[in-house]
């Protein structure tokens, strides 16, 4: 069985992506507050929704990244031929 090695560089990259998702979710929370004229206290009262949204965005991005890694060899093969 092939071992999966998560290098420090890979771990850092994933954490950066997760941080990016978190910042994006906070941004959406702020956008929602502005668009729907709700209370600014939602910046901290909706922390659970922000956290949940962070992971949802992360997994959506992950899905597209995995899709990209899956199809990339096909293009490479075609180019070498």
């Amino acid at each position: 069985m092939k071992e999966i090695v998560l290098t420090t560089e890979r771990q850092k990259r994933e954490l950066f992506i997760l941080l990016g998702c978190f910042i994006g979710a906070i941004g959406l929370n702020i956008l929602g507050i502005i668009m729907y004229h709700t209370a600014w206290k939602e910046l901290y009262t909706q922390w659970f929704a922000v956290l949940l949204l962070t992971f949802v965005i992360y997994f959506i991005i992950l899905f597209f990244r995995l899709l990209y890694f899956a199809v990339r060899p096909l293009f490479r093969k075609g180019r070498t031929r």
Binding site: L28, N29, L31, G32, I33, I34, M35, Y36, H37, T38, E42, T45, Q46, A49, V50, L53
Partner: peptide, 10 residues
């Protein structure tokens, strides 16, 4: 009471 802004946005 309206739903939180983030929920409405989603």
């Amino acid at each position: 009471q309206p739903a939180p802004g983030i929920m409405q946005l989603i």
